[in-house]
Design a protein around this nucleic acid. Structure first.
Lengths: 183, 183
DNA sequence: CGCGAATATATGACAACACATATATGATTC
DNA sequence: GAATCATATATGTGTTGTCATATATTCGCG
């Protein structure tokens, strides 16, 4: 249910079209911890409207194609607040890389090291991305409050990438220490 | 596709029934980073057999119900090795809690603190679980090699929980420092 | 003027997954 | 003897998500 509530949350910034929501808001924030493609977002907006949590009207574009601008309703705000106040159950994070590593004994030491190093490179790239990423300072009281919470989630991403790199470095060193015959 | 390969991997330990696979192996290992319910595992075993990656025969149980014992085939071993050798694409980890936190400004400081503290308690429980969890020492060369790779994934889980608790403690302290009027 | 890029929305098809439920056997417990 | 638990497998169904594809407009470039 997170995508529904994430979209309702973004609509609290201002009413907007699916396109603006995805390209100007979603992809720069929520997508870092709850990615979704265009089809999913458009369908979710339709479903939100069908349930009365959002409403839309067509805006005639003079310089662009017409767009359908969505606005959160009172019912939508109530549903969002309700959801935000209840602790979500902890869900096990799925990671196919850990499945690969768990069965590392089934391939050669060089092969598993190559997979580990490729993973390290990906996370180094991500760490760099999150280090450079900075949040818009906020030009209104609302956006300044928003920036604080955005800062918490960004802090999480940075800590996670640091932890990942530490663990990958330790794992690579450990596997390198295992003689080929033992692997 | 991870579940398919995880199941093939478990079948390399020994041929076994869906029930044994789930309760004696899957839930104690793979489920920590790729959970799946009974229905999903049984259907995946059927699909693996349909593709020739596993084969099964019925074992008549004298003291229990009959069971269908699956064995990995040559083709299955080949498919598994193939998959293990290729680095899987990095997938964004979805976390509904981060969605909640990102929109923390929409509820009261006390409410978001309650959600943060509930999350902290969950991760403290998980950390305790992973600290106590120890892998079977391995009674054969294969299982000793297996224990090494299992150790790497366990190390990851422990580091992740430590990072989570550090971040949650820092976030709780930070939010506590924000005056209610500002939140 | 044609072409591609950016803007904008929508749907079909399928895979993966979660949750519920159905069924059956044999052992243990009260 | 009835109830319950552990063992064991199977399927129905709805939701979510992914990927591909279709369609339409306007702008800028060569």
């Amino acid at each position: 249910m997170s995508l529904r509530h994430a979209i309702l949350g973004l609509l609290t910034f201002q009413p907007m079209s699916g396109y603006a929501l995805k390209t100007r808001y979603f992809d720069c924030s929520i997508a870092h911890f709850w990615p979704a493609d265009q089809a999913q977002i458009y369908r979710t907006l339709q479903s939100l409207e069908a349930e009365g949590l959002a409403e839309s009207h067509t805006v005639v574009g003079e310089t662009r194609p017409n767009s359908r601008v969505y606005r959160i309703t009172q019912a939508g705000q109530a549903a969002l607040s309700e959801w935000l106040g209840v602790a979500q159950p902890l869900v096990t994070q799925k990671d196919s890389f850990l499945v690969q590593l768990y069965f590392g004994r089934l391939i050669s030491r060089d092969q598993i090291l190559a997979v580990l190093r490729a993973r390290r490179a990906e996370h180094a790239r991500l760490q760099d991305y999150y280090q450079r990423l900075d949040l818009p300072p906020g030009d209104s009281p609302m956006m300044r409050r928003q920036a604080r919470f955005g800062g918490l989630t960004l802090d999480f991403a940075r800590r996670r990438e640091t932890m990942m790199l530490d663990w990958l470095d330790a794992s690579i060193a450990e596997v390198e220490g295992w003689s080929e015959g033992q692997v």
